[in-house]
């Protein structure tokens, strides 16, 4: 996911930069304003429609990827592993530190004091999923671990002096 986001961002930003460079390089010669305006405004109309179509496509395709399913269903499907997570200044309290691979896990995330951010990282330190940990609320984060191994839990919401050392781990074992 990060790779895709990074690539799309880089490409689109380069397109914008290239457009600016092109216009700046062509700024010296003086031309009548009205024809330039006409030409650019037709480009503008074109751009609008391209963006509008892109907008609808992305909006529809991204609907599937939203992580809110567990939050809004009344009961977890049979076989779901449930872990209660509570964040404190500055440690995590997990009801269990071991889960099975390839079976959905639902983390019921909350906080005992300030706001925290519950984030799951894999062994190569790639962020896999996250949710906020907030006092008085339970955020339900569902995740399916594909590979056995040791996964890290990092805090992703600033919570005071030792925010950066608020790290824990989860052991994922084979089925």
């Amino acid at each position: 996911m990060q790779e895709i986001a990074w690539t799309i961002t880089l490409v689109l930003m380069l397109v914008i930069i290239a457009t600016f460079v092109f216009v700046v390089l062509n700024s010296g010669q003086v031309a009548e304003y009205e024809p330039v305006k006409k030409r650019f405004y037709s480009v503008r109309t074109g751009l609008f429609w391209v963006l509008a179509v892109g907008f609808v496509v992305v909006m529809l395709s991204s609907y599937q990827g939203m992580p809110y399913a567990a939050q809004h269903r009344s009961e977890n499907p049979i076989g779901t592993q449930v872990i209660d997570v509570e964040g404190f200044q500055w440690y995590w309290k997990l009801s269990s530190n071991e889960v099975k691979a390839n079976q959905p896990v639902v983390f019921n995330v909350t906080s005992g004091d300030a706001n925290h951010g519950f984030a799951i990282y894999d062994e190569s330190l790639t962020l896999l999923a996250q949710t906020q940990a907030m006092p008085g609320y339970i955020n339900k984060l569902e995740y399916v671990f594909k590979e056995p191994g040791t996964y890290k839990i990092l805090c992703l919401e600033y919570c005071g002096m030792a925010h950066h050392s608020m790290v824990s781990a989860i052991e994922v074992v084979a089925e």
Partner: peptide
């Protein structure tokens, strides 16, 4: 606008928020 929109996509935000 570009990285803002990318991060404003919920499925991306799930792995980018607060990074």
């Amino acid at each position: 606008v570009i990285p803002a929109i990318v991060d404003g996509t919920i499925s991306v935000n799930n792995v980018m928020h607060n990074t």
